[in-house]
Computed example of a mutant assay.
Amino acid sequence: MRATTNPELAAAWATVPEVAKAQERHEAAVKLRREFPLRKPPAEALADVQAEAVAAFSGTGKWPSTFAKDAAKAHADALVWEAEALALRRLEDVTKAAAEDLRDSLSVDVLGYLDSRLTEILEATRSAGETLGDVTTAEQAIEAGGDVLDAWRRLTSLLKDYRNVRDAQWDVLRAVAGMEDRSRIVRWRDAGHGEVKDVRVDDIPSHILSVMRSRAYTIEYLVWLARSGSAFVPTSYDDLEFAVSSSTEPVAYDDAGPLVDLSPRVLPERTYKPLNTRRDPRPYVD
Rank of each mutant, 00 (worst) to 15 (best):
M1T: 01
T5M: 02
W13L: 12
W13Q: 08
V19C: 15
A22R: 00
A22K: 07
E27G: 02
L32M: 15
F36V: 01
P41V: 08
A45V: 01
L46K: 10
A47I: 05
S58F: 05
K62T: 15
W63T: 12
F67E: 07
F67M: 00
D70H: 11
H75E: 15
A76Y: 03
D77K: 04
E82F: 13
A83R: 15
A87H: 03
L88T: 05
R90D: 15
R90W: 02
E92M: 11
T95Q: 06
T95S: 11
A97Q: 02
A97M: 03
D104C: 02
L111N: 00
L111C: 02
T119D: 11
E130D: 15
D134L: 12
A141T: 08
G146D: 14
L149R: 13
A151P: 11
R153F: 15
T156F: 14
S157G: 07
L158R: 07
V165W: 04
V165D: 11
R166L: 07
D167N: 02
Q169L: 01
Q169F: 00
L173W: 15
V176T: 10
V176A: 10
M179K: 11
I185S: 14
R187H: 05
W188C: 09
R189C: 11
D190H: 09
D203F: 05
H207D: 15
H207V: 03
R215W: 04
I219K: 11
Y221W: 15
A226V: 10
G229Q: 09
F232K: 04
L240P: 09
T248C: 01
V251Y: 06
D255S: 13
A256Y: 10
P258H: 05
P258Y: 05
V260K: 10
E269Y: 07
R270L: 00
Y284G: 11
D286N: 14
